[in-house]
Amino acid sequence: MMAFWLLLTIFVLSCFIGYFVVWGVTPALHSPLMSVSNAISGIIVVGALTTAGFAENNISVLLGLFAVFLAAVNIFGGFAVSQRMLAMFKKKEKK
């Protein structure tokens, strides 16, 4: 029970951090914000990895491996498309 309240505290505080950090993002970069958040939400891969690596039955292992695959698409795709977008935002060339 204690553990649950601890996690809930972390959850609520993280929401506040998210709120303030995200309002600080310039509107010009709202598209990269979405792709970066896609990429970091791929952290769900950590759950997928432990499921695939510790499950006792084959179905769970297989489902876990599928989840690893999907999360990897998110991670690599999200970071790569963000990098591509951000590289386009250039300063004025000095004459």
Partner: peptide
């Protein structure tokens, strides 16, 4: 999973 990193990251993405 009781995984703090997942909770922190998920809530930031959710807030975003």
């Amino acid at each position: 999973f009781g995984n703090v990193l997942l909770i922190v990251t998920g809530s930031i993405v959710g807030a975003s």
